Simulated scan of single mutants.
Amino acid sequence: MEGGIFRERLKALAQIMQALKMVKEDNVPCEIEEGVYLGSLGAANDKITLKSLNITHVLTVASSLSPAHPNDFVYKTIPEEARTTGGGVLVHCFAGRSRSVTVVVAYLMFKNRMPLLEALEHVKILRPVASPNLGFMSQLHGFERSLQGANTDTVLQV
């Protein structure tokens, strides 16, 4: 019984160590298109870099992450208005690999009328760790089908 508890605590400690490494090493946002950046928790915590890139808004795609600099940036959930205010937007989740990538890919599909695979490849070129999980890929495929059958000008104004 005690061995199981020890293993669970050791696993939790390893996850914390990985998170700290990520915050330290993966702290540069990738510009996906003008004013739209993708990154991890590390990028979201680097206030100097965010300011230097004229990022004014941060879209966090993780309910468990609190805003790192609430007095310096506008933190939002969807819908996002920063693209109309002249500032840049950092979209991030914990690792910047799945949830936030899914949001950015969907944005590119909608705004630029890009097919899913083209939008995903574009993001992967700029952020090689991008890898939406199977559930998100399924949702993106469904979103692609809905875009093909809908008049997107009436669905959402970006």
Score class of each variant (00 low, 15 high):
K47A: 15
K47Q: 14
K47E: 13
I48L: 12
I48V: 14
T49S: 08
T49Q: 05
K51Y: 07
K51T: 14
S52F: 10
L53Y: 04
L53D: 03
L53E: 02
N54D: 15
N54K: 12
I55N: 03
I55Y: 03
T56F: 04
T56A: 08
T56Q: 11
T56N: 06
H57S: 13
V58D: 03
L59Y: 02
T60V: 12
V61W: 04
V61A: 12
S63A: 15
S64C: 12
S64W: 10
L65I: 15
L65E: 09
S66G: 05
S66T: 10
S66M: 14
S66K: 11
P67Q: 08
P67T: 13
A68R: 01
A68M: 08
H69E: 14
H69G: 11
P70K: 04
D72Q: 08
D72A: 14
V74S: 06
V74T: 07
V74C: 06
V74F: 07
Y75E: 12
Y75Q: 06
K76A: 15
K76R: 14
K76M: 15
T77L: 07
T77V: 11
I78S: 05
I78Y: 04
E80R: 08
E80G: 03
E80Q: 10
E80F: 07
E81R: 01
E81Y: 05
E81L: 08
A82H: 07
A82R: 07
A82C: 14
A82K: 05
R83Y: 14
R83D: 13
R83K: 08
T84E: 13
T84H: 12
T84I: 12
T85D: 15
T85F: 12
T85S: 15
G86N: 05
G86I: 07
G87A: 11
V89T: 15
V89W: 05
L90E: 11
L90W: 05
V91I: 13
C93T: 03
C93E: 08
C93R: 01
F94V: 11
F94D: 09
F94P: 00
G96N: 05
G96Y: 04
G96S: 12
R97N: 08
R97M: 15
S98A: 08
S98D: 03
S98V: 03
S98Y: 02
S100P: 03
S100V: 13
S100F: 08
S100Q: 09
V101L: 11
V101F: 08
T102I: 06
T102V: 11
T102Q: 03
T102E: 02
V103P: 00
V103R: 00
V104D: 02
V105D: 07
V105C: 10
V105P: 01
A106Y: 06
Y107R: 02
Y107L: 13
Y107A: 05
L108C: 03
L108A: 05
L108M: 11
F110W: 04
F110S: 01
K111H: 12
N112V: 00
N112D: 06
R113V: 14
R113H: 13
R113F: 10
M114Y: 03
P115K: 10
P115F: 09
P115G: 10
L116T: 03
A119D: 06
A119K: 01
L120E: 05
E121P: 00
E121T: 07
H122M: 12
H122C: 10
V123W: 00
K124N: 01
K124V: 00
L126A: 06
L126I: 07
